[in-house]
């Protein structure tokens, strides 16, 4: 009942790029979309986030807690995204990177408390003043997730977020991400081509290419 895709399909030059998708993701749940590269997984995500390229047209509806997202611009949707690159702002320290996400009406003291707490959950206490480029890949991935979550999104999209991490790290980061989503109790949509990325017991949808 929280993130709903109804009969969603995307058209390019008049023809759909995959079969219509029907999905309901409840808060705290993670649904995985699988499929080979080029099947339109990322296009589907950009449709949900609101950054769909103008060459595509959207059919069907996207509902977030009952409200239709169609005419709402990306920045007003309140949907967070996590990419495979960490995309931390390289000229700001970790603390500022996180503070950038926190919404207004928070005092500076409150803000630094929120940041402290967030860093603690990721096992990165005292990282406020660190330069993003001095962090390891796994640390960056965790900060990047924290940043997305500190904006208090109503839903989270994950665009192959683990694909650039090495094997030993992947499992750890995956668990961290999934537990945080559970804790936030928001619906999440994960796109990947690696079956091991799917959370246990989560729903999996294979994206089929439209034939003919």
């Amino acid at each position: 009942m929280s993130l709903e895709l109804n009969n969603l399909s995307i058209l390019k030059q008049g023809s759909t790029i995959f079969d219509p998708v029907n999905l309901v993701i409840k808060p705290g749940e993670i649904t995985t979309i699988m499929g080979p590269s080029g099947c339109g997984k990322s296009t589907l995500l950009s449709a949900v986030s609101g950054s769909l390229d103008k060459v595509f047209t959207l059919k069907g509806s996207i509902l977030l807690y009952g409200s239709n997202m169609a005419d709402i611009s990306m920045e007003k949707r309140n949907i967070g995204i996590l990419f495979q690159d960490d995309l931390l702002f390289p000229h700001m320290d970790i603390g500022s990177n996180l503070a950038f996400a926190i919404k207004e009406k928070t005092s500076r003291v409150q803000k630094s408390q929120i940041i402290d707490k967030a860093l603690k959950t990721a096992g990165l206490e005292g990282f406020e003043k660190r330069d993003p480029s001095s962090l390891s890949g796994g640390q960056k991935a965790r900060i990047s997730l924290l940043r997305s979550l500190l904006a208090k999104p109503s839903a989270l999209l994950l665009d192959e977020p683990f694909s650039k991490l090495d094997q030993t790290l992947k499992a750890k980061i995956r668990l961290f991400v999934f537990s945080q989503i559970k804790k936030m109790n928001i619906p999440a949509l994960l796109v990947t081509h690696d079956p091991r990325d799917c959370p246990e017991g989560g729903m999996i949808l294979n994206l089929n290419k439209e034939k003919g």
């Binding site: 986030s49 309140n78 690159d85 000229h91 940043r147 997305s148």
Partner: peptide, 28 residues
């Protein structure tokens, strides 16, 4: 600069394009 992705990240955090330019991209 990776403008396209920075704009995506910023907008996903709820900022308008103009704000992302002034707050993130111009300083960089």
């Amino acid at each position: 600069l990776d403008i396209k992705k920075t704009l995506l990240v910023g907008r996903a955090l709820g900022y308008s394009k103009e704000q992302i330019w002034l707050k993130i991209l111009i300083p960089r």
